[in-house]
Design a protein around this nucleic acid. Structure first.
Lengths: 159, 159
DNA sequence: CTCAGTGCAAATGATTTGCACCAGC
DNA sequence: GCTGGTGCAAATCATTTGCACTGAG
């Protein structure tokens, strides 16, 4: 958190941006979140503290957090976007149908990613690896019903 | 193509769906495309053949192609969605900033993915692996200018 | 004191949907 | 002929933007 705050501050300074109380609050709330969250989620929590903060400011600030390398951003298949603090698990599997997320722990995976990136001349300053597939529950249903027809599909954030 | 057509037909049959001339045309155009394409791209090509086909039908059909396991779908960071036929390279790196795409060829990579998926109880019927990062060109600019300020950023489909 | 930041409301752009007519099986 | 398919226009939903005012450096 201290480290990230430093990055944020440095980013702002280098880009002629100001550290407003809104940005500070959003930063703090974002960093203390355990899970990935949508701009809307973040807005709700932030507004519990300061009623006046607008959705636009959330969006604008999230972009800065992302540019500063503090936030990772996750585009779900259903058009929603989630953000989470950088640092922890950066690889995951996502079921294309139900949205279930499973973090990947295989240590070889990371090494190979980095090495592959290097080989391709792709400097991996920060990264995120996502394997899109179908989870077992969804596979069972794949040829049983068209998408959107089942209770299992379309759920966004399974518990 | 023959194989895919069979899958498509089987999918339709199993789901009580009909093989209309619109679906057939969209299927053919989609399968003969070399590159990934957006619904809009597809619409344009399809309309060169049949003026009357609507955007809605393109979207509806693409969903079916995806459900049938024929189309892979790629969500870009800028909110656009692209589709491409399944089969060829399934791993790639994408620059989060400029959208540049680099296919990954490392053979170990695929093996590890499959194995990891298996270990996590994630049956990988079909998959797609994406590493999001920053390409070297964008890294140079990362602390030089905020996002959206440079000519390099925001480009969607670099040549 | 100046330039960037903010809230608000309106704009945008991708995707979806309701509906009345049309066409596979 | 019944059921699902289609085009169209209107609706949605996430995200962005123009603008006049406010506040950080």
């Amino acid at each position: 958190m201290q480290e990230s705050l430093k990055s944020f501050h440095s980013y702002l300074t280098h880009n002629n941006l100001k550290l407003t109380k809104q940005r500070m609050l959003i930063f703090k709330v974002f960093m203390s979140g355990q899970d990935e969250m949508s701009p809307e989620d973040l807005l709700n929590i932030v507004q519990d503290v300061d009623e006046g903060i607008s959705r636009s400011t959330i969006y604008r600030t999230l972009k800065h957090l992302h540019s500063a390398g503090i936030a990772r951003c996750i585009h779900r298949g259903d058009g929603t976007t989630y953000y989470e603090p950088m640092g922890d698990q950066s690889c995951r599997m996502i079921c294309e149908r139900c949205g279930r997320t499973i973090p990947i722990k295989n240590p070889y995976f990371e090494c190979i990613q980095k090495e592959t990136a290097r080989q391709q001349g792709f400097t991996l300053f920060r990264y995120q690896c996502v394997i899109h597939g179908l989870c077992s529950a969804c596979i069972e249903q794949e040829y049983t019903a068209p998408p959107g027809t089942t209770t299992h599909s379309k759920q966004r954030r399974p518990a």
